[in-house]
Amino acid sequence: MDNSSKSEYSLKLFAGGALSTTQYALFAIQIAVVILLSWLGVIATPVVGPGIGFLYWAYPFFIVFTWWWGLWGVLAAFLGCFIGAGLLTGLPLIPSLAFSLGDLVPALLVLILYRGVLNKLGVDPLGRDIFKNKLAAFWFVFWVMGITNIIGGLWGVWVLVQLGFVPANAYWYGAGLWILGDAIVLIIAPFLARALTPIVERFGLTTKGIIS
């Protein structure tokens, strides 16, 4: 990837002008995909604790969607968790809403770092160079699999403790399982980005700013 295409992506709100109808449809469909995968992440993987599924398949998807589509990926992270991992699995309204912030915040932090900072340090804001660039690999492991994932896990299990779902004594155990499970599935993200980003770019579907 050349430097000129890196500089196209930024934290401006509407860097790409008005949204096309295809992008409008795409953003709705990607939210549906994240909802579906979040639901599968809870019902088709081992339940290791109250409200804690071990392999949350939606996580790498919304990270890649955030790289590609900015705030729309963040919205998918939030709605995917709220509807797919929350409401559709029987978790009530308030716990689902509070618990979904555990996905919204990591996605938002990933967006800010990749579009705002790493872009200027020569790291691909769309995550294609994780296998080629040591700096990109470091930030992916440190920021995406590490810091943001830990924040999400600590928040999610804290909410479950506050709502009386998880005993307070089990907080660290629950958070540990949550963080470990998410870190494992996040291995998929660089593969997805490497394989599909050229297609998304070729169709002109990425957002240069965080909304368009």
Partner: peptide
């Protein structure tokens, strides 16, 4: 399971993009 899911995820995302282009 991750390897198996990776094999699903790439066609799923590609199909999602195709659907969006058709729908658009």
């Amino acid at each position: 399971r991750i390897k198996e899911f990776l094999a699903l995820s790439i066609p799923l995302t590609a199909l999602m993009i195709k659907r969006a282009v058709e729908m658009g």
